[in-house]
Design a protein around this nucleic acid. Sequence first.
DNA 1: TTTTATTTGTAACTCAAGTCACCAATCCCC
DNA 2: GGGGATTGGTGACTTGAGTTACAAATAAAA
Lengths: 206, 206
Amino acid sequence: MENIATIFSQLEPALLEEITANGVIKTIPAGEILMRTGQFIKSTMLVLEGSIKVFRENEDGGEFLMYYLQPGEACALSIICAAKSEASQIMAKTVEETTVLMVPLGMIDKWMLEYKSWYHFVLSTYRNRFDELLNLIDQVAFRNMDERLDFYLKRHAKINNTNTIALSHQQIAEELNSSREVISRLLKKMEQRNMVILHRNAIELI
Amino acid sequence: MENIATIFSQLEPALLEEITANGVIKTIPAGEILMRTGQFIKSTMLVLEGSIKVFRENEDGGEFLMYYLQPGEACALSIICAAKSEASQIMAKTVEETTVLMVPLGMIDKWMLEYKSWYHFVLSTYRNRFDELLNLIDQVAFRNMDERLDFYLKRHAKINNTNTIALSHQQIAEELNSSREVISRLLKKMEQRNMVILHRNAIELI
DNA sequence: TTTTATTTGTAACTCAAGTCACCAATCCCC
DNA sequence: GGGGATTGGTGACTTGAGTTACAAATAAAA
């Protein structure tokens, strides 16, 4: 794992020291649920390594994808909920082994006043999540499933920095709140158009 | 119009004085566009009276509703964009004659450090908008049009504190990104189930 | 009072996408 | 290697909702 100062290079040195002093580094195995619908949140997390999936669970247990948290990012919701100690609407879980830095909620308010770089970091966290949600609304409100699938695959490839998506059709269907058959059909069409090559548990982008 | 101190009673007196000193009160006629997609934002707004519709415009000019800003609320986006001076993804316009207090963006950052009540106000503005977007995603991703229509009518009634919605089917269709015929059909069904009474340009909730 | 524009009602059609049913291929583990 | 589990392919059917087309009702304007 890289150094905290490298991952959060935009934060000023004095703040990084405080973060190191007050935060607890925790490594979480893949697939662990970090936040459950309706759960009370008592600390925020900065992602150091790995990746966290933020999603909404529907009635059938499908995990409708909202966005991913990557190293160098923080959970906007935990910061927001902090202020109100209100129930969160969404869930979060690790997709791979993930190292996070847990920061007590009290520190967040304190640092906002003391460190300009923290203030800007928190605001930009909000803004990025806000944008991400606007984008998601765009997708579900205006796009058809074929466009959404295409967008999903490309984003997934970009985030993981590879052009092979190692997911089953079922998993993709759940993240897009669709059904396996629909995704299989659309992927077949994409293959016929030479946009992808299909393998078992893997989709290769061309 | 009520007093600023009454509308924003959660803000501390010293801050209210500063707001009055630095802000400009502006009354805007109904239907005026306050923020256009891609436009640069140079000041934030606190709503004193009236109401502002925040929406996304689709290709055909339909105004897909995101949420309404009411007296006592502020535009979260303008605050977010402020920090980054980035283009906004969405549009805003007055639905009726609206009085706002324009505050230069520079003040926002300044007050965050100086006034705890401002800090909490801004954060709660973010959180409320975030919640609103999550709710919207819920609607478009998981609900059918009949449920969305029902939800829409009830919310509209609640906001305007009346059980008569003074809108044409066409207007409703645009805000839900649907078509007039679909809304007419669904409303007819609701009337048959004794959920509403239909009038010209008005829908009465029972 | 005509004329015109707006609003609403409805039937018929189309299409995207979800569901059902079933099968084949592949993997995994005992 | 055999048997169950997971994954993927495909046809047939259903449904929600958008589209086309047209008519009736009402309001607004001339």
